[in-house]
């Protein structure tokens, strides 16, 4: 089973993403985001550190993905590796490793709160996320 799949949505882009635990779910949600937006970077040589605080776990996921969308757009970078180095339900620190974007596939405007669900499952955790495209 792939770590994410697309879910039917009339106008935008919805995914179901999985991870062995919630931090892994966050990393996989980021991997899914970049698989949808771009081709992998030619040379993943740039490391950026991201620190975020949010009001709750769902907000933290939305803020994490939107921070990556922002960096991708303004820095012209694509990230291929996501290391969550510290995680609580309202804060995270992560290292993201990537390089210059080689080919863009799709513009994703933002991750939204609509229908956002993070659930613990027998296999770990999964989240339903809707992106505005």
């Amino acid at each position: 089973m792939s770590f994410f799949e697309r879910v039917e949505h009339t106008a935008d882009l919805a995914i179901l993403v999985r991870g062995e635990d919630v931090p892994a779910l966050f990393a996989n949600a980021a991997r899914a985001l970049f698989q949808l937006m771009t081709e992998p970077p030619a040379a993943p040589e740039r490391t950026r550190e991201i620190t975020l605080e949010s009001v709750d776990r769902e907000s933290l996921l939305v803020d994490w993905l939107n921070e990556l969308i922002y960096l991708h757009e303004v820095e012209g970078e694509t990230y291929a590796e996501f290391r969550i180095t510290a995680f609580t339900p309202t804060a995270l620190t992560a290292q993201v490793i990537g390089g210059a974007t080689t080919r863009k596939l799709k513009t994703i405007k933002a991750a939204t709160y609509h229908d956002l669900r993070i659930t613990e499952t027998a296999g770990g955790a999964e989240a339903h996320i809707v992106f505005d495209v």
């Binding site: 949010s54 009001v55 907000s59 939305v62 803020d63 939107n66 969308i69 922002y70 405007k109 933002a110 939204t112 709160y113 505005d132």
Partner: peptide, 13 residues
Amino acid sequence: HQVCTDYVRGFQQ
């Protein structure tokens, strides 16, 4: 896109 992102985030609390 960023204006909306900022205010959706900023309005939660």
